[in-house]
Amino acid sequence: MKHPQAKNTITTDFVTVSYRISCRLAVPVGGLFALLIDPLNSYLELQDVYISRVNAPGTIVAHREQAALRKDSVLFCVLTRREDGDPPKGTGFFLRPVSRPALMTLPSFEIRGQVEAEGRATPRDILVQTSNRYVPIYDATATYALNPAISFEGQLMLVNRDQLEALFMPED
């Protein structure tokens, strides 16, 4: 069943602690981000789903036409095109967001990329000042801590804040 406001179908990868789940899913106008933060649904309805183990992410171990994915279990999702999931930006005049390099650690993964923060926001500010459960990180590379030869790259990754262990940012 499609999301009631679904407008578009995108292809993406969801990464959990043990699996890479490649699929198509219907997203509303706000893209994948809007779907992920929708408080009315704890599950994502996936189509044409291919499952790989994280330690061999190129090898498909199963395929199903449909699946339901618990949002809680997602560590992060990988989008090759930023426009498929970019959160809406504020229209602040005085504090325009600026890109800053960041490192995030999650169970079994470290993600390097750029986060957008207003002014001199600290890592804590970035995590506290948003009520959204997913933190966007741009031009990101996620490296599997147990085998650093395995990595994922995307113009945008949406990281589950509940799974985030630490956020590091350089001093200004």
Partner: peptide
């Protein structure tokens, strides 16, 4: 649409 470098490796393999 599986665009990661591991997908390239797997395809060539």
């Amino acid at each position: 649409a599986r665009t990661q470098s591991v997908d390239r490796e797997a395809a060539l393999a």
